[in-house]
Simulated scan of single mutants.
Amino acid sequence: MLTGASDPRVTLEQARARRKFTGGPFTFRSFPGGHFFLTPQQDAVTAAIAQDLASLARPATH
């Protein structure tokens, strides 16, 4: 879950509550900015998504 820390439409608590809609892993990340945080935070958002995808690609250790 990615959200803007100062989004006037969705509070951080409301965004975190979306965890209940998934049965799988849930990662919550907030970034500086409001509802349209993606544009000014493009590099940070891209890095966060790449990090999450890389962690999924790693083989599980047993």
Rank of each mutant, 00 (worst) to 15 (best):
G33T: 05
F26W: 07
R9K: 07
L53E: 03
A5S: 09
G24F: 06
F36Q: 08
A57R: 13
V45G: 06
A50D: 09
F37V: 10
P32E: 04
S6D: 01
F28N: 01
H62N: 05
S6Y: 02
D43I: 13
T39P: 02
R58Q: 12
Q42G: 14
I49L: 13
F36S: 13
P8H: 04
A54W: 04
L53R: 08
I49A: 09
P32I: 06
D52I: 14
G24H: 06
D52E: 13
I49H: 05
A57T: 14
E13C: 08
A50K: 13
L56K: 08
Q41D: 06
T11S: 12
L2Q: 05
L56D: 00
H35T: 11
T61I: 03
L38H: 14
T46C: 09
F28M: 00
A15C: 03
V45H: 06
A47P: 06
A44T: 13
P8G: 03
T22E: 00
D43H: 12
T46A: 12
H35K: 12
E13Q: 13
A15V: 07
L56C: 10
R9F: 15
L56S: 10
D52T: 15
V45E: 00
M1G: 14
G34D: 02
Q42Y: 12
P59K: 07
A5H: 06
A48E: 11
H35G: 11
Q42H: 15
P59N: 02
V10K: 01
F26H: 12
T3D: 00
D43P: 15
R18P: 08
S55I: 10
A57S: 12
L53P: 11
L53Q: 10
R19G: 05
P32F: 02
P8N: 01
T11M: 00
I49W: 05
G23M: 02
V10M: 00
Q41P: 11
V10C: 02
D52W: 14
R29N: 04
F26L: 04
R58C: 09
F36Y: 13
A57Q: 12
T39N: 06
D43R: 14
F26S: 03
F21H: 11
G34E: 00
A17Q: 03
F28C: 02
G33L: 01
A15S: 14
R58K: 15
Q42I: 15
T46D: 02
G33V: 03
T27Q: 06
A60P: 12
P25D: 10
L38I: 15
L12K: 05
A44S: 14
F31I: 08
D7H: 07
A44D: 07
H35N: 05
Q14A: 12
P8M: 01
E13S: 14
S6P: 01
F26N: 08
G24R: 10
D7S: 05
F36H: 12
F28A: 03
G33A: 01
A47E: 11
K20N: 03
Q41K: 06
K20V: 13
F37Q: 05
Q14K: 11
I49V: 15
R58I: 09
M1K: 08
A60Q: 04
Q14S: 10
P8Y: 03
T61C: 02
L56W: 11
A48Q: 09
D52C: 10
V45N: 01
K20H: 09
T39F: 08
S6F: 01
T27C: 06
A15G: 09
R19K: 14
H35W: 04
A5D: 03
P40T: 03
A44Y: 03
